[in-house]
Every structure is written in structure tokens, then in C-alpha cells.
Design a protein around this nucleic acid. Sequence first.
DNA 1: TAGATTGTTAATCGATTAACAATC
DNA 2: TAGATTGTTAATCGATTAACAATC
Lengths: 213, 213
Amino acid sequence: MSELHQNKVSLPVIKRLPKYYRYLSEMHQNGVVKVSSSELARMMGTTASQVRQDFNCFGGFGQQGIGYQVDVLLSEISKLLFSEGDLDTILIGTGRLGRAISGYLTGEARGYRLIAAFDKSPKEVGQPLGGLQIQDIASLSDFCQEHKPQVAVLCIPKSSAQELAPVLVGLGIRNFWNFSHYDLSVAFEGVTVENVHLGDSLMSLGYRVRNCQ
Amino acid sequence: MSELHQNKVSLPVIKRLPKYYRYLSEMHQNGVVKVSSSELARMMGTTASQVRQDFNCFGGFGQQGIGYQVDVLLSEISKLLFSEGDLDTILIGTGRLGRAISGYLTGEARGYRLIAAFDKSPKEVGQPLGGLQIQDIASLSDFCQEHKPQVAVLCIPKSSAQELAPVLVGLGIRNFWNFSHYDLSVAFEGVTVENVHLGDSLMSLGYRVRNCQ
DNA sequence: TAGATTGTTAATCGATTAACAATC
DNA sequence: TAGATTGTTAATCGATTAACAATC
């Protein structure tokens, strides 16, 4: 039963896939061949039930009585995460954070191709950034019409994001890695947004530290 | 009924507090005086029920029949998030990401005081970083014994995090803002960890883009 | 075959949403 | 008072965990 019956996978499951990928990659590198749901659960700090339920969202990856083959599991999850080639991606905002993220995208990340970076500051425009040349935000429209990027990474302040979001959506971009503190998903329907709200993250840590939770 | 009866607040609620804080700050700046749970819910893309349930984890912030006063709500939530002064914080790892985060901590973030930055590279050690001088990781132990930092920010690779985590925990640090791909919470009990796994975030976005969810 | 472990259904748990009495 | 809106209890929904038949 190895075909995918991935009708509608819940967000909690999707969010766990990368963690499975990390642990399985490591095991694979260490030459581990076989793993059971309970071993994997113990390593990852979860339950065997959850591991099996999660994998069964995508079809049967294991062998009853035996367990899971690490390479099979890894390649199936890789297919889910990275299939169909790299995603053409543009970066908006080349400040400190934008530059760090650009390095991450080009260097370590898998499944994405950074094809352009934009900034509105004349100081930034024309500067090199990881093999690319930073472009003026004014040329965004032309660029998108020509290259049809699939993903935009927003490393800009809230106010700029609020301004730019309708433009980007209007240009056909439907997927966002959003570092701005503007809530894209509240304003736009049918758009896929992965938020990295550093401020929120830090505040919720602060709450837990101060209130001992 | 304005006293806090905050026995044990669930993580989903805690994670929503920063978002309330953001929206209420903006309203406050715009001179909005009063808001109802349904207005706030509509703005934030949630439900009035959830807003009221959330606020009632901390006690009654509103007035029946009237609504909530923006300034009361904002100051109550600020108390929850930022009370008891700034948290002494150290940064481990001063690469691209570490530098971006350091700027964020010193510049924009509220409730934290960055008191030291460490790196193991001799190239980094001694360099200035936002008013501080980067220290050698070898002096971490002495520094912590003297200054008792409460929070460590980990901007280092997985392997370094794996090595350093027991050291940091041994030195009494119990709170982590973790950008490394090492799962601290799996290995250590009784430790508060806020993860920012950029790789995981990007992969889960990739899944949704590729599988149209 | 017996033991192990999956795939899958059922039970539990917790979070969200709805309902409504309290009250401004 | 009547209308509005909270605080809080009850109902629903969904995710996690447990149980167990299928099967290697």
C-alpha cells in the first residue's frame, strides 16, 4: 500500500515532517538501516502512535512485524518535501536579517532557488548579494511578470509589508515566507504563509520565563 | 475581578499573547479607546469566543455590556509579557544570523538585555558587536558564574549546540531561544525552549506549496 | 509457529466554538 | 429599562493516544 492517499493532511502533521526528515537524515548518515516507530518516537520525544499515525497520512511506509527501512522513509519524506524541483524565490528586503536569510537560502536550504533580491534603499540597490545583484523594488513588477517567482521572502518592516503585500499578490505570488510583523493571512484568502515572527517568538519565551511555565 | 488567576495557561494561549499585544499597541497608537471581543476577533482573524476565553485565563480585563478598554488590556498584557525588568541574555554564535539577531535584541526587542556575545572563531573574538565585544567561548563558564544570565540565544550549528547545551544547562541557564537545529527540549527536562527552526519552517512551507495546501 | 511491529479503528484528551446568564 | 457585551459553562471539534487485528 505504498501509493499516496494524502487527501488533506493536517497542519500539525505537516509541521512535524521536517523533524522526521532531520532525524532520519542523521540516522541514514550514521548507517542505521531499520527503525521502529517506538525507537523513532523515543529519540524524538514523541509517541509511537503518533509516528505511525503521521506516516499513515501518506500511505504505508513500513513493514508489519519488521519496522521501517530508514532509506525508504527518508526518500518518501524527501519526495513530499522537495519533489518537483526547486521553487523560484525572491527576497524582499536586504537588511541584516534579509542578508542572513539569503545566505541560508542559497547555502543550506534545499528545495528553493533564490532568483532575485529587492530593496528600496538606493544604498542597497546594485550591491552584490550571494551571486545576485540587489534590484530596486521599483523593478519588482517587471521582474515578476517575466520570471513568475513562486515564493516571496519578506524581510521588511510591517509598514512596507502592508504596502507591498497587495502588489505581490496582484503579481500572482501566492506563497510567502514572512518575517515581517504584518499578518498576511488575515488580509488575504487563498495565500500560503509561513510566518517567522521573531518578536512574537521572543515575547512568548519571555512570558514563560517570567511566569515559570 | 481584576486579580490574576493564571494557574496554568496553555501554550496555544501563550503563543497568541504577542499577537494581541501587537494589535492592541497599534490601536492604542491610533487613539482607539475601546474595543469589543468581536471587533478584535474580526481584525485578527479569529473568533470573539477565543478572545474572551484567552483574556479570562488571566482574569477579567473587560466590562460587561461595554467591552474592553484598549489601554487597560494593553497594560495588563504588557505586565504579563514584560514584568519584572529585562532578562539578562547572552548570545552564542556571531555569524550572519547571530549578528542579525543581536541587532534585533538590542534594537527592537523589549524585555531583554544582551549582556554578552560569544563565538569560538578567533576571527570573531574581540570584534565589536552592538556595543559589546565578542568573547571567546572559552570564557563562557567564568562569565556565567559571575553574571548569571537567564537566557541564552543559540545561533550556532547543530553539532556545536549539542556540545554546548549540557555546559549551559550545567551553568544554570534554563531558558533558550534556540535557532540551532538541535532539539534541546528532547534532551533536557525542566528547560524552557523557544525554537526558531528556520529549516523546518522553510520545509513545511515547501510541502504546502508543492502539495497545494 | 511465535514474536514483533505495523496499519487502523476506537477512546481520550484538550482546544475551540457556541450558548447563555450576569451585568454594565 | 432595553441593548450590548462580558465572563463562564456547555457542546463540538480535532488531535493525540491507546488498543488491537493484520501480517511479516
